[in-house]
Simulated assay, not measured.
Amino acid sequence: MHAAILTGSRRGNGGKKRSASRGPQRQGRPLDSMILESAMSFQITGLPLSQFSPLFALSDEELARRGAIRVTADQSLGFPCRVSLQDAAVGERLILLNYEHLPVATPYRSRHAIYVRQSATEAQLAIDEVPQLLRPRLLSVRAFDAQGMMKAADVAPGTAIENLIEQMFSHAAVAFLHVHNAKWGCYAARVDRA
């Protein structure tokens, strides 16, 4: 049902151009009328450090009571920090915890495991910048409206995420995106229109 919002293409039926008046309908309007006219810039953001920095002063027992554990990165790819939006280097200390990344009052409310580096500083990305952390991964991008209802979802390699972001933001109903690692399912970053 939601896949239709992602087509973005006005071609169907063997490549023949469809008129907007005969196109698919959504709530009484042609789907094409929901497409914004110009491509928008985007801003990718990580999580705020202030939510996690107190955890590093806790003992392992105190972390365990919160469902979190202290870990050390043992490979250069596989410990992605959600604050700095950088992969931890081998030997770096992190905390692995469960985090509610979509605290909305809808069926899509969601939480999952994330890593935070002990030495993390908040990511400061330029508009339209994609962090290197996302590039080598297969990503799941989920589009939500302002109420937190999922409107669309798709997967793309990190090397092509800009195309999927542009496609999803071309629809007026989409307010923000969440990026997840497609294989492990964990939350990676938020994307907003800039």
Results as ranks from 00 to 15, higher is better:
Arg82Met: 05
Ile114Asp: 00
Met34Phe: 15
Arg137Thr: 07
Asp145Asn: 13
Gly185Pro: 04
Gln147Asp: 13
Ile44Gly: 00
Gln43Cys: 10
Glu37Arg: 15
Ile69Trp: 11
Leu47Arg: 02
Tyr187Leu: 07
Asp32Phe: 15
Gly14Asn: 11
Met150Ile: 06
Glu61Asn: 11
Gln167Met: 13
Ala146Gly: 04
Arg65His: 14
Gly67Cys: 05
Lys151Thr: 09
Thr106Asn: 07
Thr106Ser: 07
Arg70Asn: 05
Gly14Ser: 14
Ala68Ile: 03
Ile35Val: 14
Glu162Gly: 01
Ala173Glu: 07
Phe42Lys: 01
Phe56Asp: 02
Ala188Ile: 07
Thr159Pro: 04
Arg66Lys: 15
Ala57Glu: 15
Arg117Ser: 03
Leu36His: 11
Val155Trp: 10
Val155Pro: 00
Ile161Ala: 01
Arg111Met: 12
Phe42Tyr: 15
Met168Ser: 01
Asn98His: 14
Ala57Val: 11
Lys16Met: 09
Asn13Tyr: 12
Glu37Pro: 06
Gln43His: 12
Phe176Gln: 04
Ser84Pro: 03
Ala88Lys: 00
Ala189Phe: 00
Thr106Ala: 08
Leu63Ile: 10
Trp184Glu: 14
Leu47Cys: 07
His2Ile: 15
Gln27Arg: 13
Ser38Phe: 13
Ala105His: 14
Cys186Val: 10
Val104Phe: 05
Ala3His: 15
Asp74Gly: 06
Cys186Leu: 09
Asn98Gln: 14
Gly8Leu: 06
Lys183Pro: 00
Ser84Glu: 06
Val141Trp: 00
Asp154Pro: 01
Gly46Arg: 01
Ala89Lys: 12
Leu133Met: 15
Ser59Phe: 11
